[in-house]
Simulated scan of single mutants.
Amino acid sequence: MTTTDTGGSGSFSSPYLDRIRTMRHVRNGKERVIEAILFVAAFCAVAVTVAIVAILLYEASTFFEHVSLVEFLTGTEWTPLFERARYGMLPLLVGTVVTSAIAFLVAGPLGFLIAMYLSEFAPPKLAEVLKPFLELLAGVPTIVYGYFALLFVTPLLQKLIPGLPGFNMLSAGLVMGLMIVPYVASIAEDAMRAVPMALREGSYAMGATRFQTAMWVVLPASFSGVMAAFVLGISRAVGETMIVAIAAGQQPNFTFDPREPAATITAYIVQVAMGDLPHGSIGYQSIFAVGLVLVVITLFFNLIGQMLRRRIREVY
């Protein structure tokens, strides 16, 4: 019979305990390496965002040294390519808002209904077939959507709306909405599927129908994900370039009529980036000013999403 002496003047150290300590040190070292990698990844995302905003602020400050901020935000003429340049960005802002609003009116309800059907009503085998086809739309190049709007949707609308110009915000907005439907539907459907099945079973046990369960149990539980889908969708619409550049035209018009042609912020940035204005000129610097406005608009939509998420959590 053997005994282990752990008392007395010192602690007993065995090869077994040394091995445990070594394994613990190795495990802790691996954990620290993984934490460092994750920190670097998160830091890179934050650093890139900060760098983009910093560059926009720096370049835009040069523009605002020559152009009044009041004129930029309230002016209704945007003619940086003319000899008598005007830098009122309201025409670009209105064009962006109108096309994005049309796109969201299409993609929001349609994407939500598709997500609800795939998550709550579609048979599993049918959902497995439909979802890949839906996500396939997200892989279509936006320039293809642009020419689809110009060559198919616009002629179709001209038959319904006599006198509709060849370039118009309505056609661009409708096709933009179709383009972002997969983003909204996919993210919203994933959020709904993440709701625990126990909540659905409890609702069914109380006598609720499938539709009632979807609207009053699944939707509130997945509201954060659904709002994230909407915010991502409208942010995608605000930042879309090729569809509006091809189908809506590049003429800055201060009009809320979707039947009229107009230019958006992104379309103007593309127009200048193609070399219409010399590098370093005031007109060229204007793309950083309007780009900063685009960032602010996207931030605004994200803040709205955060406020809605907090409110729905308080209600439920």
Rank of each mutant, 00 (worst) to 15 (best):
L81T: 07
S13I: 15
A51E: 09
P162H: 02
V144Y: 05
V40R: 04
R309E: 14
V184L: 08
F72D: 02
Q271V: 08
V48P: 00
A188F: 04
G7I: 10
P123V: 06
S11L: 15
V48H: 05
A205T: 08
H25Y: 14
F211R: 11
R236A: 00
I20D: 03
E128H: 14
A228H: 01
W216L: 14
V50G: 03
I304Y: 03
M197A: 11
Y204L: 09
T76H: 09
F64L: 07
Q285P: 06
P252W: 02
Y87F: 15
E71L: 08
I55E: 11
F82H: 12
V40I: 12
T255I: 06
D257S: 07
G108E: 05
A245G: 03
D190M: 09
Q271W: 10
P155A: 05
F254Q: 00
Y204A: 06
L232C: 09
P278V: 04
V293G: 01
T76G: 08
N28V: 12
T96D: 03
G75W: 00
S203M: 04
G173P: 00
R313A: 14
V40L: 10
V231I: 11
T2N: 13
A191D: 02
L294N: 03
I265H: 01
M176L: 12
L170C: 02
G239A: 01
G305A: 07
T213F: 06
M274L: 14
V181C: 01
Y183N: 14
V272T: 12
R310Q: 11
S9A: 12
F223L: 14
I304V: 15
I282T: 15
M274R: 15
E31A: 12
V153Q: 04
Y204T: 03
G207K: 06
G88S: 05
L170M: 02
Y284A: 06
A198V: 14
E83N: 13
F64W: 02
A45H: 07
N302T: 11
R19N: 15
Q212V: 12
A273T: 07
V270Q: 11
V296T: 07
S235C: 13
L299S: 10
L136H: 03
L160T: 09
G202L: 04
F230K: 01
W216P: 06
F112W: 09
T22C: 11
P165F: 00
T99D: 07
I265S: 00
V181D: 00
F211Y: 12
M1C: 11
A188V: 07
Y87W: 05
F288I: 03
P15C: 07
F230S: 06
R193N: 09
W216S: 14
L69E: 08
V94A: 04
A85G: 02
F152P: 05
E128L: 15
R84H: 11
S11W: 13
T264N: 00
R309L: 07
E59V: 08
L113Y: 10
S61P: 05
F43L: 15
M23F: 14
R86F: 11
R32C: 06
I52V: 15
A51F: 12
A115Y: 01
R310N: 10
R24L: 13
F39P: 08
Q212P: 04
A185R: 01
G108W: 04
V129A: 11
V129I: 14
L38E: 12
F133A: 13
